[in-house]
Design a protein around this nucleic acid. Sequence first.
DNA 1: TTGTATGCGTTATCAG
DNA 2: CTGATAACGCATACAA
Lengths: 345, 345
Amino acid sequence: MAEEPSERATLWAVARRAGVHAATASRALNEATRPLVAPDTIARVLRAARDLNYHPNHAARSLRTQRSMTIGVVIPDITNSLFPPIVRGIEDFLAPAGYVALVANTGRDVDRERVVMREMLARSVEGIVLATARRDYPLLEEPPLRGLPVVLVNRVTDDALFSSVSTDDRLGARLAVAHLLDLGHRRIAHIAGPDSLSTGFGRKSGYLEGMRSAGVSAPASLLVAADSYAEEEGYRCASELLGRRSPFTAILAANDMLALGALRALDEHGFRCPEDYSLVGFNDMPLVDRITPPLTTIRLPQYEAGSEAARLLLDRIRQRDGPVSAVLLAPKLVVRRSTCPPTPV
Amino acid sequence: MAEEPSERATLWAVARRAGVHAATASRALNEATRPLVAPDTIARVLRAARDLNYHPNHAARSLRTQRSMTIGVVIPDITNSLFPPIVRGIEDFLAPAGYVALVANTGRDVDRERVVMREMLARSVEGIVLATARRDYPLLEEPPLRGLPVVLVNRVTDDALFSSVSTDDRLGARLAVAHLLDLGHRRIAHIAGPDSLSTGFGRKSGYLEGMRSAGVSAPASLLVAADSYAEEEGYRCASELLGRRSPFTAILAANDMLALGALRALDEHGFRCPEDYSLVGFNDMPLVDRITPPLTTIRLPQYEAGSEAARLLLDRIRQRDGPVSAVLLAPKLVVRRSTCPPTPV
DNA sequence: TTGTATGCGTTATCAG
DNA sequence: CTGATAACGCATACAA
């Protein structure tokens, strides 16, 4: 036995070696149809398959069954540390089900998203996990996606037309605000993320709610909006806040990159964190526990978000008319050293 | 026109609409065979294809042409910040060529690598980029991979049987050693990476060469080997060095995670960096410029490594008997504040 | 329980 | 230049 199989063995090769027809071999090899085959035939086929190191040709199966066993994952940028855990969560959940993920990075370019989705459709993905949604996202209603299972992750749209998995951004911001209020802060500034993203909008809402429900005022002078989640923007926004001369003692940034930029701005203006200004971020990026000062932030269950999104997508693939569900994951406050009680004036 | 195509249009549908045979439509649609078709036929076919929003069925094409237009990428862990830029480099290079990447995380589990590669072979990947190689890596010689184009990235094997793209680890370590020597250090310790990995071995060799060629001794008491590139290991190794009571004034860690662990150890032992001990890392991970002190490290061109690996792989796919080449990329010393001249005793 | 026949959507070969 | 035909490898309805 074990003559070196120079070419990949086909189903026919297996069948011949087992002394049966290809159809029988096929039935014996597939879990679902195996009960239709006689026990010793099954044994012979399985043995032959193993001997020949048979692996079904994916393209042929896919063509025949109309199932690609592939899903698409569209993310802004894998080098943004927010996404690797999400992707990992997706892939780890998919793998045992026999699915693989086609991952594409689109940056912030909507045209690129369109191109990428076409490419995925061309490869017959059975569904898509999207991490690039904006609150208003007409792309999802364009014909190419018609009927294709889609699950939004991290960012969601305003209208809940699709299933989604996201963190409770409002709650996260409220946790942060509550923490700062507990420490005694009253003048709390917010560097908001883009309004066009559910994360930016939700966190800002949570900030406003948190302030309001505590009876603390949140005037427009304490609010500044970043154009993107970039360190540079955090720097710009913090500088602007400092320039406004509307006093405050703490900053809640809509994510860690913005917080990092804010920290740099504070530093360059000669202020210390947390003595002069407390600072809270969002995301708990790797290494923000090692900067100076270690950053107090809101941790999101990213890996779980990914696996949960994959679960919803597979559910939907298996049962097309299943319910549209919006899963909301709980964020967690991680207190480190960038926050402390405000210095009495 | 533009009746909503409820099902995906097939080549036959396009052909019918253009009033030609499917074979002709196929020729008209494919760049390579297009010259065989009459100009106005081409126009009619193209038009019909656009009207029907035709996209070739990937599985069918793949089955027929025996080309999947897919390559596999095997990495230890996408959540390790070293890999996202590499993956990005690969994908960005592949995309214009019409290829997509199937990315799989294997951890440090060789069995998992085997499983993953089988899965990839089952999907008929045309080649594989491997970032999980060890210096001795028999897996590559096992039959399943026979003849499949493979390019190693980041880590390489001792025998140059496959094309590879890596950073010049020896040079990187020598740059780091030279920097420390320039500052006046003579007793330089090294926290080495695993000997089984080309990165660990190469960096250690570079360290030894750098010391030796400067006429400085590098006794075994200044060398300690980490079992893995984990922060915890850096902590353990640094603690061990400190416990040895063989004096030194600087540490070269084989990567940034080890350096981070070493930094924690120094801190916990009441030492300051760089005043008491200078510290150099390797990789220039995100945010190591924001920790205290900002880490002096060796920067690797990760994105370029990825795109270069993709280039080599595509070359090899297009020309199976092309040369095996080992591309060595130049690392760069990034001086920050974790290094300074040694304090005179 | 097994074999036969057919088709999934393309492309390549061979006539015409 | 174009049409007919076959085949890629597999799974399934149907027949035996």
